[in-house]
Design a protein around this nucleic acid. Sequence first.
RNA 1: GGGCGGCUAGCUCAGCUGGUCAGAGCGUCUGGUUUACACCCAGAAGGUCGGGGGUUCGAACCCCUCGCCGCCCACCA
Length: 887
Amino acid sequence: MLEKTFDPKSVEPRLYLKWETSGLFAPKADAKAAPFSIVIPPPNVTGSLHVGHALNNTLQDVLTRFHRMRGEAALWLPGTDHAGIATQMVVERQLAAKGNEGRREMGREAFVKKVWEWKGESGGAIVRQLRRLGSSCDWSRERFTLDEGLSAAVRKVFVTLHKEGLIYRDKRLVNWHPELQTAISDLEVENVEVNGHMWRFRYPVEGADGQSIVVATTRPETMLGDTAVAVHPDDERYKALVGRMVRLPLTDRLIPIVADAYADPEKGTGAVKITPAHDFNDFQVGKRHNLPLINVFTPEARMNDEVPPAYRGLDRFEARKRVVADLDALGALDGVENHRLMQPFDEKSKSVVIEPYLTDQWYVDAATLAKPALAAVEDGRTVIEPKNWEKTYFEWLRNIEPWCISRQLWWGHRIPAWYGPDGHAFVEETEAAAIAAARVHYGSAQPLVQDEDVLDTWFSSALWPFSTLGWPEKSADLARFYPTSVLITAGDIIFFWVARMMMMGLHFMGEVPFRKVFLNALVLDDKGQKMSKVKGNVIDPLELIDAYGADALRFTMVAITGQTRHVRLSRQRVEGYRNFGTKLWNAARFCQMNECVSDEAFDPGAAKLTVNRWIRSETVRTIAEVTAALEACAFDDVAAALYRFIWNVFCDWHLELAKPVLNGDDEAAKAETRVMTAWVLDVCLKLLHPVMPFLTEELWDKLAEFGAKRTCMLIVAPWPEAPAAWIDDAAREEVDLVIEAVTEGRSVRAELNVPPSARPPLHLPEVSKAHRAIYEANEAVIASTLRISELKFTPAPAGSIPFVVDGDTLALPVAEFVDLEAEKARLRKAIGELDSDIERTRKKLDNPDFLSRARPEVVEENRERQAEAEAAKAKLQGALQRLEGLG
RNA sequence: GGGCGGCUAGCUCAGCUGGUCAGAGCGUCUGGUUUACACCCAGAAGGUCGGGGGUUCGAACCCCUCGCCGCCCACCA
């Protein structure tokens, strides 16, 4: 006998271990099986499972398990990302906390070794947590972005793109992180609106006594690097000044006034200071006018030696104050206002101001790679869902900028470039190859120095779909599983990752990396707030698993995933789905108590009893519904269909309707109902397994204690078929009628739950008021469905309604239950309502506009509805007549 | 500045290409010691589908407009 409730805590670890050790997570080797593959969005090794992971890995697991049960060679390939900046910072912080010497003191080699040590000790947390969630990843294929294999792929890609001219070195402005002292990509910058000031400075025009031009700025310290002032060519105010020079205060440098359309007469004063080395726009202006670039910052964003001695070594914000004060003292400060401005911060800490900074970096020609990536989505080789993300994807790729891929970090893939004594770069996959190339180039062996930088973490991530499958080797996995079937990831990395995988996959494999991209929503808290440690509203999925079990959390994740970009997670909802699991558990318990044992030889198609033919129909419909929803990634529909069927159909109705049969003494009927019920329960377990793997697997096992043993674990049990022939419309109509009757009335079920010996008469009038007439018209059907023939009816007193059950005319006392007049009034009212329905529909059907405009099936529906309404009306009228005859 | 979402019962959300679409879950209230389940069962209340206008025989669903809320992108005068 099953316990009263499911105990996730003891079952989950046991089952997971059983699955994993059975090797069932690996795709079957059977070459005939259709491949299905997903590569995991590799979580950072430093990470721990957050709700976003819980959501997106649940969805991946649901699909993987579904396809596995369908007999496909289902591969879910797991792995982790070395996460350059994040990991390096974690280890640095840890070193500092332990009082060890810092990164720079210990040197590159020692530091990297430390990081590897750290990875070995602490890097496994996230994959253990994925297991707790129930993720059926093939751990034998687990990869890490810094694996030797993946590193080889990275080098090959880098070298190939370089040879193709798609990777190049360039000196231009980058987003510079002054604290980490590394370049970061555009995407790693977050613009935040902050309160600031707008200062106006007067720059004296040289040779024009007393005349000056007023420029506005939010970053006064950069004025020390100004190399021009720009005005709009058509700006009448300044036309005369174009070509003149101004004397830059504090520096005494002479800089020109140039005409450039970039200067917006509407903004500020219409004259804008140009600092080509510290502003992306100014950089462009500088290029157009051939202006010198004066870098005034050190890598830590302190003032360097290009500025007058008084400012050297000052932090940029300190320098800002000093510059303003000094200009004010000189009388060059024209004014200052409060100003809201967008300031770039680093998106991780959101506290470090990013500076445009002039450096040499490696770039990918993203615009060229973007073209095939655009085309692939445009022509549907890859489908992005929800569809509305496609526009976002197109927009970004169409306006893409060169991708800065070098980082001044130590943890990551070192750039495979070696420099000769004259600075010439040899880009090769190995140092040996670089040396060889240098020998050819120089005509003799020369000492080479490898580039100090590493690659942006996203560079290796971009190769993930094929590098993890063995590329550049021509591996069997690569041939079999690329392109992958679907990618499930969070929408916020569509640029960082999805778009770049598309670019790299198409370029190196000549084929899209995935057929479908499903972008899951951002998980908010129950109040719709973004979760953040600062706000303290972070929901910990592991804590939810502890409290309600992994299955409940998983079901919740599936249920909240629709077409929207945001979903809210509430404990209450998880609790509700835990209850759902318990409901099924108890249904199974009921089945077990009633000896409902599944039988492989049972043919559901041969069922005779109405109630059994009915539940078979409902089951088949549900199988079709769930299957279709899974195929379409309509996860909310999957959850809704399962919930409704298992709770509201199977438990609420089938088990209730089966009770009288199971408690009766028609042995044939009992036997059929038992085996059918067991069959339906098995189907429930199978359909629910992808979403709630633990509970279902446990029941699958426990239910086989009696009866035949299972031939396999549920995880690899065949997905149920849905033969249309098993849908029995007649049975469905009959039982629908009963359900409708019961639902409209009080509670037949309450009566049926009483042991047969103690049962009072069936309170028909209580069953249905409005539908009593219909009920009467179908009494025989109902009787056979519910097997109420076993009930003992009290003898009919005078003035009772005749009631036919299994050929015997019984009678129900009327006076006791029915107010005849009220009943007649109800019937008349119902008839009246039907009449107006019929009238309305008739009008519609007579309307030529409707007939010509509405779709044919809608017209057909209306016709059917009309016929039904008329039939119902006839029935009601018959019933009314009968009642009138009694009166 | 550009783009994208959302605004449907107290709360969270379903409502497919216009024609039983005004729904579900939770919450609330009422009633249940029904031997699978109180993590349960039965029932009730509650919404002019953000406002306004339009198209249509018919609109929560299409168009226009306004209003909030949120997100993403954008060269920080």
